[in-house]
């Protein structure tokens, strides 16, 4: 196998992993605050279509990305109003958000089906991008760098900053946080909005980088994978990266295996990414004390202040 081919495979793995990383890191922050938003798939779809539409009509891809973020946040705000202010059931509202997002994105995107889009150009970091093999890590598209930066920032925020401590406290016990005088609803609303922005970015990545075009339901279940990754990664950002790369990696490798004609039923190969990711993450999260310490205790519970 030539270096070029290897680099090509590695590159596709990273591109496959990036949207998952965006969506899961956003959902991780949302869930750490105690809110379970099952609408990731819908927010991603809206991000994808709005991102493509804005980029296509303005000719400015950066504006498209901003549009996707705004679309994701708007969807998240809708979810936040329904579940945090009107205290609706989070599971039902999240499922509704997914259905709504998939439907609305199809409606908006109808005019853009089959329209060729311009992909986001890669950015080379001078000096580093010429290194053998690892050089490819410095010849990626700007959104991938952003995903890595967001992951590091979220990790730092959650475990090193006061705001992150408050966010985790709200997700651990909203009653105690309220008694100490923190605004549970405000903290959660901001976490939900951040989750929406990240899901929007994940959608933008799909329609502007991964396959630069719009097709209906192009999120293809990635929102659900992202949700599962958060749980199996025991709400730790570092493990989300592992999970995303693993899923991306196996899904690309199984494509190559199918192309090479390996004597394994293709259905099994297609299922392989799901199986491997789940098995590996289950194995690394066997430490039950760690799982218990990191699971937001108030996850999915609605909060109504008693005044």
């Amino acid at each position: 196998m030539t270096t070029l081919m290897l680099e090509g495979i590695l590159l596709t793995i990273i591109t496959a992993a990036t949207p998952l990383l965006f969506a899961s890191i956003g959902e991780l922050v949302t869930e750490r605050s105690g809110v379970l938003n099952l609408g990731v798939e819908g927010m991603m779809a809206m991000g994808a279509v709005v991102g493509f539409a804005v980029a296509h009509s303005t000719g400015n891809i950066a504006l498209g990305v901003v549009g996707a973020i705004v679309a994701g946040m708007a969807m998240a705000a809708l979810f936040g109003v329904v579940t945090l202010i009107f205290v609706a059931n989070q599971v039902a509202s999240g499922l509704a958000l997914t259905l709504f997002g998939l439907g609305l994105s199809g409606l908006i995107g109808d005019a853009f089906v089959g329209v060729p889009g311009a992909g986001l150009a890669r950015v080379s970091i001078p000096g580093l991008s010429d290194l053998p093999v690892v050089g490819l890590l410095f010849r990626l598209d700007p959104l991938t760098y952003l995903a890595v930066a967001i992951t590091i920032a979220v990790s730092w925020f959650l475990f090193r900053m006061r705001g992150g401590l408050i966010l985790r406290a709200v997700g651990d016990s909203h009653v105690s946080a309220h008694a100490l005088g923190y605004s549970v609803i405000r903290v959660r609303f901001m976490a939900v909005l951040f989750g929406g922005a990240c899901a929007g970015l994940a959608g933008a990545y799909l329609s502007l980088v991964y396959t630069p075009q719009w097709t209906q339901a192009m999120t293809a279940g990635r929102g659900w994978i992202a949700l599962a990754l958060v749980v199996f990664a025991t709400w730790l950002p570092g493990r989300v990266v592992i999970g995303a790369l693993l899923f991306g990696g196996v899904s690309i490798l199984q494509l190559h295996a199918q192309a090479l004609g390996v004597g394994v039923p293709s259905q099994f190969l297609s299922a392989l990414p799901y199986l491997t990711t789940i098995v590996v993450l289950v194995i690394i999260s066997r430490n039950r004390a760690l799982v218990r310490a990191n699971t937001p205790a108030a996850l999915g519970q609605s909060f109504v202040p008693d005044r």
């Binding site: 651990d172 008694a179 205790a297």
Partner: peptide, 27 residues
């Protein structure tokens, strides 16, 4: 708290998953 009123709750208002320092920092 700014006035100088502190409270020790009956049902503890502590965060189980956090450390002692983190719990105190929050207040």
């Amino acid at each position: 708290r700014k006035l100088g009123v502190g409270m020790v709750f009956q049902h503890f208002s502590l965060f189980e998953a956090l450390t002692v320092v983190e719990n105190i920092a929050l207040a």
